[in-house]
């Protein structure tokens, strides 16, 4: 009894969410496998092909969540993700040719730059400024496409990055892995990473300590925009074209993945490994629920309940006592 208690206490506040999220992933796999064993007599979920396929789908969410985490670490949020994803995809397919992917990334970068400027220099709360930017980008895209799905198709390179495989490993998964390594290095091995945490903890203190807070905030929003742009470009490759609302399904799951992974929603605390596990958890949960042929209604309820239960275990804030 006391041993267990010390084990739990020995884990730092940042390790607990990661351990718990990992346990939950195992639990989901166990429940899913038990279900497929009883209904179909096979353990589909545990086959490497199936897992790789799920991770390939999860890569798009993973890219968005990675960018979102940088912004949340600052204590901000980026609500412009849905139309950044869609706009990057649409512009990339419109331009086509070898310039498609750079254009997709630039669109994301541009949106991030505007977001960062509004938040860092105009000091408008990110919640409302990015919401406005999202509306403007949506307006631009509706004007550009005429309100219909654009007829242009994704370039072969985009399709290759999204659905291609190298030695059985999906390329999208490799892209996600490379981005993940870069983010981990950025957060843990560079001064910029340390600044992100410092600003998230106490912006005024970071400013007084000589951190170029405004430039760091702009940089974080730019990276978030660019990663959303990358996700949009790959997503267009995955479905061979861009369409309205293709980014809508990524905003809330990305925030949820970051928060389930133990990053504090008000900034300053969090580890990238947690975000990674959060994404895997959400992707697997979705796939197990679709194997069980759960209707949308049940999915929503389970989805919400999982977030609450996870946060009740380790995401509770301190009680205000002074």
């Amino acid at each position: 009894m006391s041993d267990q208690k010390t084990l739990w206490n020995r884990l730092s506040a940042e390790d607990r969410p990661i351990l718990f999220a990992a346990l939950f992933v195992v639990l989901i796999l166990a429940i899913g496998t038990a279900y497929t064993l009883t209904t179909q007599g096979t353990a589909t979920l545990l086959s490497p092909t199936y897992l790789l396929q799920q991770l390939q789908v999860g890569a798009f969410l993973g890219l968005v969540a990675a960018g979102m985490m940088l912004v949340i670490l600052l204590g901000h949020i980026d609500l412009s993700v849905p139309w950044t994803v869609a706009a990057s995809a649409m512009m990339a397919t419109t331009v086509g040719g070898p310039a498609a992917i750079p254009v997709g990334l630039s669109v994301g970068l541009l949106v991030g730059l505007i977001n960062g400027f509004g938040v860092a220099y105009l000091r408008i709360p990110s919640m409302i400024f990015t919401l406005g930017v999202n509306a403007v980008v949506r307006g631009l895209m509706v004007a550009h496409t005429g309100g219909f799905a654009p007829q242009t198709a994704a370039t072969p390179l985009m399709q290759y990055l999204a659905v291609g495989k190298i030695g059985g490993v999906p390329v999208a998964l490799i892209v996600w892995a490379v981005v993940s390594v870069c983010i981990v290095l950025l957060l843990n091995r560079t001064s910029i990473g340390r600044y992100l945490f410092a600003i998230g903890n106490k912006e005024a203190a970071a400013f007084l300590a000589g951190v170029p807070t405004r430039r760091i905030i702009i940089l974080a929003f730019c990276l978030c925009g660019m990663l959303s742009g990358l996700a949009g470009t790959l997503l267009a490759g995955y479905s061979t074209k861009a369409y309205q609302g293709m980014g809508d399904a990524y905003l809330l799951p990305a925030i949820a993945a970051v928060v389930i992974g133990g990053t504090h929603i008000l900034g300053g605390r969090g580890r990238y490994l947690g975000t990674l596990l959060g994404v895997i958890l959400i992707v697997l949960l979705n796939s197990v629920l679709s194997i069980m042929q759960m209707p949308e209604a049940g999915r929503q309820v389970i989805y919400g309940s999982v977030i609450i239960v996870m946060l009740l275990v380790y995401g509770r804030t301190e009680k205000v006592t002074q």
Binding site: A297, V301, I308
Partner: peptide, 23 residues
Amino acid sequence: YGRIQPIIATLATGAIFMGLALF
């Protein structure tokens, strides 16, 4: 009582309410 940040708590309960509406 859960001491969860309002923005994330209502994100989750919102999903639950939406599920009930779909039922």
